[in-house]
């Protein structure tokens, strides 16, 4: 039986796909057989972030509708051999993801993999509901910014009422907060919500803090999951998050600003 992890947020553009790519790569790198599914029907992007956009032949909806087998649609990652990608359809309607169809595919994957990572679309519509419905755990990606925090709280409410675990009265979906685009300098100036502020408002355990970093854009430009940029702060922060997801205790890093001297502040504008 695979563990099913949804990466969700409510708000768009906070880093769900970046996080899905890195978490699935991190799990696979540790030897776990992992598949990452793109639920964003019509706005497929995980393939680009994972650098397999030219290898997509069949997709998730093809498998649901019986037009292709799972083996035909799964794309094996070229860097980590225990990692597979199931791309979203670019042309179908979102409603093509039926509850039964998704369940069938997830059950089949569940026999073959240790982890199934579901990359949710933004919003709280059908696609997002399907992505979170079968989840055992949820990584809620949040930016330290008012609209993102509010939307995260909304998605937490949906996890607690509309997931399969909630409907069946089973143990609740295990929730994790992943705070991304964090800028410790601005936090220290009082211009940005701190980790503690967001933790206090959302009241769920902290999985990790990803610092705002130019490495993230550079990595996505090249189709490299940022976790593979092992020398970068963002890459290491994702690696810590994956370790914690697997139950390892790791101290949080990259949460304080790298102190600049008085003179460099003066001449570079602080």
């Amino acid at each position: 039986m695979a563990r099913i992890i949804v990466v969700t947020s409510g708000k768009g553009g906070v880093g769900k796909t970046t996080t899905s790519a890195s978490i699935s790569t991190g799990l696979a790198k540790r030897g776990h057989k992992t598949v990452v599914i793109d639920f964003d029907v019509g706005l497929r992007n995980l393939d680009l972030i994972m650098n397999c956009e030219r290898r997509v032949v069949y997709d998730f909806v093809n498998v649901i509708q019986g037009e292709a087998t799972l083996n035909q649609a799964l794309i094996r990652d070229k860097r980590v051999d225990t990692l597979y990608i199931l791309p979203a359809s670019q042309t179908r309607e979102k409603e093509a993801l039926t509850k039964d169809g998704v369940e069938k595919v997830i059950n089949e994957l569940s026999d073959r993999f240790d982890y199934i990572v579901c990359d949710s679309p933004a919003g709280i519509e059908h696609g997002a509901l399907m992505a979170l419905y079968y989840a055992d755990e949820a990584v809620v990606v949040t930016n330290p910014e008012v609209s993102s925090v509010r939307d995260s709280d909304r998605i937490l409410g949906i996890l607690q009422s509309k997931s399969r675990r909630a409907e069946m009265g089973q143990d609740p979906v295990k929730e994790h907060l992943l705070l991304s685009r964090y800028n410790p300098d601005r936090v220290e100036k009082g211009e940005m919500l701190s980790v503690a502020d967001v933790e206090e408002i959302l009241a769920i355990p902290l999985l990790g803090v990803i610092p705002e970093s130019q490495v993230v854009l550079n990595a996505s430009n090249q189709g490299v999951p940022v976790i593979l940029e092992e020398d970068s702060d963002a890459g290491q922060a994702y690696d810590d998050a994956v370790a914690r997801l697997l139950g390892e205790e790791r101290e949080h890093r990259f949460m304080t600003s790298q102190k600049k001297g008085f003179f460099s502040r003066m001449f570079k504008g602080g």
């Binding site: 910014e145 008012v146 925090v149 509010r150 709280d153 909304r154 409410g157 936090v187 100036k189 009082g190 211009e191 940005m192 919500l193 701190s194 502020d197 206090e200 408002i201």
Partner: peptide, 18 residues
């Protein structure tokens, strides 16, 4: 620019309400 505390206060109110 101590806007973070304003953000926190506003969030606490709206989140509790919702």
């Amino acid at each position: 620019n101590r806007s973070a505390s304003v953000a926190k206060e506003r969030l606490q109110i709206i989140v509790a309400h919702e």
